[in-house]
Every structure is written in C-alpha cells, then in structure tokens.
Amino acid sequence: MTTQATPTSHAVNTSQVSDSAPDLLNLARHLSAEEQHRLQRIEDYVQENIRHQSIEPWNQEELPLDMLHGLGELGLGEVFVDGSSQLFQGLAHIALAQADVSISAVVGIHNELIVGTIESLGSAEQKDHWLPDLRRLRTLGAFCLTEPEHGSDIAGGLSTSATLEDDQWHIRGSKRWIGLGTVADVAVVWARDTADGQIKGFLVPTDTPGYQARKITNKTGLRIMQNAELELDLTAPESALMPKATSFAATSEGLRGSRAWVGWQAVGAQQALLEVARHHALTRTQFGKPLASFQLVQTALATIAGNLAVSTAFMGELARLQEESQLTMLRATLAKATLTRLARESAAIARDALGGNGILSTHEVAKIAGDIDAIYTYEGSYGINMLIAGRELTGVSAFV
C-alpha cells in the first residue's frame, strides 16, 4: 500500500496581506517619543493623501499644489531649520519618497536648497521677508544654478553674469533644469560677478521683469516636479545679493547636504518598490499558486530587501555623523551615488517581478523606476559623484 504525501498548500489569505513591507531596521526607534509621533502622522498622511493621488498628476506632468498645502501644515516646509534631529529629517524624507518621489523632490529641494540657503546665507531682512511663508509651503522657491551648457562643470563654466551699476545688479544669462522654475515665487540665482569673477547668490522675485521661465516637458521621471528653462535679463536692487553667498564655496556647502538628502530618497523609493512587489507577489496567482511561492520571485524580493537594508543602514549612520558635524563630501557623494545605483537595481528587479503590469504607472513600479532614474542623475550625475569621491580618496582630480 502506497501512502501519498499531503500536498503543500500555497494558498494565501489575501484579506490578511498587509500593503506595507516590513521595516527592516526600524531606525525610528532611535527618535524621541515626540518625533516618533510626528513621523507617524507624516507617514499616515502621505500614504492616505499622496501615494495614489499623485499617479494622475505624474501622468499629466502637473504639480498638485493642494498636496503641498497639507504638507506645510505638517511642518514639512521647515524641517531643515526647525531643530528636528537629522534622523527625523531623513525618515520624513523616506516617508515622502515612499509615497511619491516627485513630491519628495519638491519638499527636499525646498528645505535644503531654498529655506536652508536663505537661512544660512541671507541677510536678516531677506530672512524676515521670505522665510515665514516659505517655511509653511505657502510660497515656493527655485534654485537656479545649472545652465544649458554647464551642468557637471558649473563651478568653472557658469556664464550667467551679474554686474553692479548705480546700486543695481544687472543679471543676464540662461538656466536649465530649474526645479519649480515656472511656479516659484522667488528664485535663488547664481551668477558670476563681472567685477571679481566670483559666483554669487541673489534672491530675485519671479515676477521681476526679465525673468522668463518655460516648462521642460516629456520627462520620463520626476514628472510632477516642474523643471524649467530660464532666460534672465533683469535688474535687481543691490540688496538682492545674499551677504554670505559671495563665492562658489557657499554653493558647494549646500550641494553637499543635498547629495546626502538624495540618499534618503533612494531609501524611500526602495521601500515603495518592496511594498508594491511584495503585495503583487502575495496576491497574484499563476499556475494555481501565488507568485510568492516561486523561488525566482522570492529571490527577487530578497534582493530588493537586501539593497534596501544596506541603503537604510548607510543613511542611519550618516545621520549620526551629520549630528556630529562630520558630513564630509566623500560621505555625501558616496551616499548619493551608491544608494541611487542600488535603487536602480531594485527598480529593474521589481519591474520584472510585476511582468506586463510593471510598465504601467497605475501599478506604481514604472512610476517609481522613472523617478529613480531621475534622482540617479540630478544633484550631480552618478559618474561625477563617483569622481568627486575618488578625488576625496586620492587627492587627485580626474575631471578638472
């Protein structure tokens, strides 16, 4: 008499499947109770009000300003300057990127390169005038550095000029890839002073005559972020110059912090990828079994989880170093370059795991993957960031 083994059941009770992937390292446990509560409010809000609501604006290349108003009420327009811990700031950026990378880019650039720049480099009068509404996301700013012919070589090649005549700055030039350039209220314009050749920073209201912005369309990533080409031929008062923004060194300081911030975006994007791919694997049935029961699918999920864990650990330790004022350019560039590279790998794996649905923005992975490709390139391309890291390691520059 032959005894037959009972077949192993691969059934999954989909009613008990959580939409959320596990928090692999639980960095939030290091926050104070107050910051843990605040982070939970942010996470709940963005999942309920941004994650799915951002898909159609992403498809249409539109910025839903009403989404920003709610984030302003949560204090996300000022986390860079409100005394929040570095870890809280990073975890807040993860929450935003997990919901939508484009919105996280808007909020992150707003904090690091607009509010942060004005707070650290501006005059008392400039701070009093601009910061109250910026900190509440009632107004927006544009960081105007990159030019049509100068991106990676902007430090030496920047050609936008500023000439002081009769107590007025005459600013002329072109800018490209300027986030929020078409919708911002104030522009942080970097131009080369014709008197001393130094790159300096100016605060220019975007309703100033001679400020012209044209939206860049047909992007495949960060489609909610309104990037623009600018033509500048304007006059600004002498007081438009930020008193501490009188050389490119001031710009580099801000860019160092923003590169580290992109690392948090890479973590949030990968968390979103793991959530979507895991939920799909558990709820999609093929050959009479859930996809989650197949070895190739489990390997894919574990690979994404591994990339996510490495990225999370990197940024958790980087936050500690930032608290100790030890954020070096080497650490910032390696964070930005390495973690966006891992995020790209995770995106390709997740896209494959979803099969045909992986190319639909409504199934989220394609949307996330497009945004990851964008953050892989902005705030310094992958190659340039790696060469900056190489220069820091060797003391020898391979590109200038």
Rank of each mutant, 00 (worst) to 15 (best):
A124L: 12
T283V: 06
V365Q: 09
R391K: 15
D66Y: 12
E125M: 08
E364Y: 11
P7D: 03
L113K: 09
L63R: 06
A348P: 00
E125V: 11
E323L: 04
E345N: 04
A337F: 03
R278N: 04
E345V: 03
N49K: 12
P64T: 02
R259T: 06
M225V: 15
V46C: 08
A240T: 10
F399T: 13
G141L: 09
Y211E: 01
A281G: 04
A99K: 01
G210V: 08
Q212D: 15
F88K: 04
T251G: 00
L234K: 05
A240S: 15
A95I: 00
V79L: 09
I114F: 08
T251I: 14
K200N: 00
L354S: 13
L113C: 13
V188K: 06
I55G: 07
G70I: 06
H280S: 09
H110P: 07
L393A: 09
G358D: 12
W58Q: 06
Q40I: 01
A21H: 01
T285N: 11
G370P: 05
F314D: 13
A374E: 15
G90S: 10
L234R: 02
G83T: 11
T206Q: 12
M242T: 05
W190D: 07
L232Q: 09
D100G: 08
G221D: 07
L25E: 02
G141K: 10
A300K: 07
Q98K: 13
E61Y: 06
Q16R: 10
V276L: 02
E238S: 10
D193Y: 05
H279Q: 10
E119L: 02
V365G: 10
G263R: 06
A155R: 12
R284Q: 15
L158P: 13
A281C: 02
L301T: 02
L255M: 13
V396D: 05
T303R: 14
N307C: 06
V46M: 04
E125F: 06
Q36N: 04
T8A: 15
I199K: 01
S252G: 12
E392P: 03
G151Q: 11
H279D: 01
A33L: 04
W261E: 14
K367Y: 02
V297M: 14
L291M: 13
